[in-house]
Design a protein around this nucleic acid. Structure first.
Lengths: 347, 347
DNA sequence: CTGAAAGCGCTTACAG
DNA sequence: CTGAAAGCGCTTACAG
């Protein structure tokens, strides 16, 4: 290992000091073009690779602001846990998180105010988990961009915005998995899907993926309902569904907090005829998994999304590079025998 | 961030030099008990936490030897990729991997020789992926242990050995998932399971988990076959199975390289009646997933196992701590619509 | 038993 | 435009 190429080695070879090499390598001003070229060539030919450990030791600390918009659910709690663990992993790399308060409801104005506060506090970057998309968000991100404050999105994307990247599950894939799981266990040919809110891009994607896959495999999607992640709305929507479409034998619930659907199904004694697939894992769902009303649930791993959001932000802050324009977290399929592994998991 | 507690802060507070603090904190000899106690107390009260970045910068390089025993399959290739990526992540932490050659067959003697070679080369730790378990392995690990060379196992455990930890899928859980997936899509009540070799602890666990879960849910496991991960043996075993137990409607193939089972099923035109669940993902399996002969496959993520093995070894080498006595990697369920995400994946 | 000094590979003022 | 010096927070010989 004694053979690692350092800035000093390059300095010796090119007859300048390591300070000059540093400047050339990091594109700082005040290095003669010709010198710079020589240095860069030497670095390349010697296989130089900056030592990130040394860089972390001297770098000034980086502040990352965190804004999580609306809906205080298990999904958000896991997201936050992931972000916190991600920050903790980078503690010695001098990364600091600046959390803004969490809201139990969606308030566009508040979000904008919080982001502005973070800017004033001088954060180096912002991790933002948006709920619904709006023009103000796009404008705000544009503004931050021009102020050189990168924004990494998590759980959802904001199309046409200048965010650096987004870490999220692929909604169309989630919908497809829901459809395919139903194919495996559904008896009839008619289905329905429930989401929280069609204005949430992710939810629309789920509908699209579910519908496309269902049609492809010869199933009819008889109805799409919005539950606003409200258990009672879910309950009454299910009632309506089963009245209007008694031939339904498969339901995909593409959102959390909508176990009302299961309650209604059991109430009507239809739980042997109708197969249900759920989304994510949370306490209220367990009972229905244990009873086999819910055959499987699709876990979107918000914990991992949070963790990745932090590491991606760090990567961008320190190297100005990003893994990909969109980073998809694989949705996982949980059954009765393995869902427990995913509650409060670490990974 | 300027408020991080350093070794220097403790030194000032306790009126010694940072060298002494270092010794006290790291349990080095030649520190008076009383001084040590004072220092440790101060450190605790000040909330001291060693800076891992600084430690990595000065630590001498660590050599990790890698031995992968037998069977050169996609599973092993992904494992190796994981180990390599794990090592690469720790490049700046001065971690170096020393690979021994891979064998396409299982040779106990060769394994022992390779491990001994690594010891002579002076590695600081060994990552070992065993195939079958034997007393010689246990003895070898014991020997390494007394020479202060920690062994981290991956993909399987060696019970009663002095390995530091093992990173692996929970075989019983894999078997249970196989059984539960069959419950979702199987028509009849009789099943069979194929594994590579019952002497492989992991395979026996799969059988146990599968059988227990099947019985629990009212299914009969009519037969258990060993394929030796050989396609032709799998093919002929399937033939025998379907002759001896024509009522079989669900099959779990708990090992790779046994798609011969699927070939036989299709040949006999039974692919509409029999549901098959596979294990892991590799090229030969794709065709049967696409045709819906294999309804789902259980992915054991050897890539992640390899990556974790490296980080666990590093943790042990640098901090003498281990996350857990056994670290389970969650098996994931792949369907037709999402298996592609897992081929050559990074994560 | 305790301490003074050098060094890991960078970055950051500051001087020339 | 280039360089000399200090420093990040540890570990490692070496001296006392």
């Amino acid at each position: 290992m004694g053979n690692r190429v350092t800035i000093m080695d390059i300095a010796k070879k090119t007859n300048v000091t390591h300070t000059t090499v540093y400047k050339a390598l990091n594109n700082k001003q005040y290095v003669k073009e010709e010198t710079k070229k020589r240095i860069l060539e030497a670095a390349a030919s010697m296989g130089y690779r900056a030592n990130k450990v040394a860089q972390s030791l001297v770098r000034k600390s980086q502040k990352i602001g965190i804004v999580i918009e609306g809906y205080y659910s298990d999904y958000s709690l896991d997201l936050i846990r992931g972000i916190k663990d991600g920050l903790n992993d980078l503690f010695d790399d001098k990364v600091e998180g600046v959390f803004t308060e969490f809201e139990t409801s969606y308030d566009r104005e508040k979000t904008l105010r919080k982001i502005n506060d973070l800017k004033i506090q001088g954060v180096d970057g912002i991790i933002f988990a948006p709920y619904a998309v709006c023009q103000e968000h796009i404008d705000m991100i544009e503004l931050l961009y021009s102020d050189d404050i990168p924004v990494v999105l998590v759980t959802a994307d904001i199309p046409n915005s200048k965010r650096v990247t987004t870490i999220r599950p692929n909604g169309r894939l989630v919908g497809s998995i829901g459809a395919e799981l139903l194919r495996l266990c559904q008896k009839g040919k008619t289905r329905a899907v429930f989401v929280g809110n069609k204005n949430v891009v992710h939810h629309q994607e789920i509908i699209d993926g579910f519908t496309e896959k269902s049609n492809e495999e010869g199933y009819e999607v008889a109805a799409v309902y919005e539950t606003q992640d409200d258990d009672m709305i879910a309950y009454y929507s299910a009632e309506r569904l089963l009245k209007d479409h008694p031939q339904v034998s498969g339901i995909y619930i593409g959102t959390s907090h909508s176990v009302g659907v299961c309650r209604k199904i059991i109430e009507l004694g239809l739980d042997k005829q109708i197969s249900v697939i759920g989304t994510d894992i949370f306490n209220e769902l367990i009972e229905y998994i244990e009873k086999d009303t819910v055959k499987a649930t699709i876990y979107q791993n918000s914990y991992m999304q949070g963790k990745l959001a932090v590491s991606e932000m760090f990567k961008y802050l320190t190297e100005k590079i990003v893994t990909d324009d969109t980073i998809y977290v694989n949705p996982e399929i949980l059954l009765k025998c393995n869902y427990k592994q995913y509650m409060e998991q670490e990974r």
